[in-house]
């Protein structure tokens, strides 16, 4: 009985003391941080690694960066270097010399290259003299969210493509007939049939290429139902 009471008192005292020690422990690094100036290298660099610390604590755990986006065929990870003709293939960097760059996709601004006359790809399989049928018509698509509205320019699209590539299968040529959302695009539907696979991909850096028309100055984001009906509001 005595031992039971003894262990009980130890447990209580431990329960009281532990949070105190925890607070003290937590406070010490904070006070250190306050006195010690933090250099920018410490903020941006990787976590100083010690073997005793879990190596899961790295910066940008889920960020995948491609080191060389325009690698030569032999270095690109999909071409077989056991295959002799792999080395006869042209490395993209040689072809891209002098073309305007971008921050995504092939890292080449293909539309600008065409506009600047740096490229003149054929519109016909064999006849280089055939001119594309270009239509200059911008379509404005209002967007529910707070991002700028979408302006779809037909011009750069018809410079490359034919009407039948998109209409009527991918985009029904009728007002309000096409429901588009970013999830569908990312999964390869609608605009995502090309954008995200061949033409410039939807990334944070490229949002404004499509979402380019600012909202009116008096625009406010519509409140969600959960907010309007929020009983604790």
């Amino acid at each position: 009985m005595k031992t039971v009471i003894k262990s009980f008192t130890i447990a209580i005292s431990a329960a009281v003391l532990l949070p105190v020690s925890a607070i003290a422990f937590e406070a010490s690094p904070l006070s250190l941080a306050a006195t010690k100036p933090v250099s920018s290298a410490e903020v941006t660099g990787s976590v100083p690694a010690k073997i005793s610390v879990s190596n899961a604590n790295v910066f940008n755990r889920l960020l995948k960066k491609i080191e060389d986006p325009n690698a030569a065929p032999a270095d690109d990870g999909i071409h077989d270097i056991e295959n002799e003709p792999t080395f006869a293939l042209q490395p993209p960097k040689i072809a891209y010399k002098g073309l305007p760059t971008s921050e995504y996709g092939n890292h080449i601004d293909w539309v600008k290259a065409l506009d600047d006359g740096l490229l003149d790809p054929r519109y016909d399989r064999v006849d280089p003299s055939i001119e594309p049928f270009v239509m200059d018509l911008d379509i404005v698509r209002p967007v529910k969210a707070s991002v700028p509205d979408v302006v779809f320019p037909h011009k750069p699209h018809t410079q490359w493509l034919h009407c039948s590539n998109c209409h009527p299968k991918i985009f029904i040529p009728q007002r309000l007939a096409n429901q588009i959302n970013m999830s569908a695009i990312i999964l390869g539907q609608k605009c995502g049939v090309c954008h995200g696979k061949v033409s410039f991909p939807p990334t944070t850096k490229s949002c404004k290429k499509c979402h380019s028309k600012p909202k009116p100055s008096d625009w406010t984001p519509p409140l969600s139902d959960a907010t309007v009906k929020n009983p604790w509001r």
Binding site: P73, I78, H79, L89, Q90, P92, A95, N106, I108, W110, L119, P121, R122, Y123, D124, R125, P132, Q159, W160, L161, H162, S164, N165, C194, V198
Partner: peptide
Amino acid sequence: VFPHWYHRIRFRCKVCHADL
């Protein structure tokens, strides 16, 4: 392995994706 970039320098999308 089909290199899109090599072909788009020489042909517009329309040639393969509409004509062919």
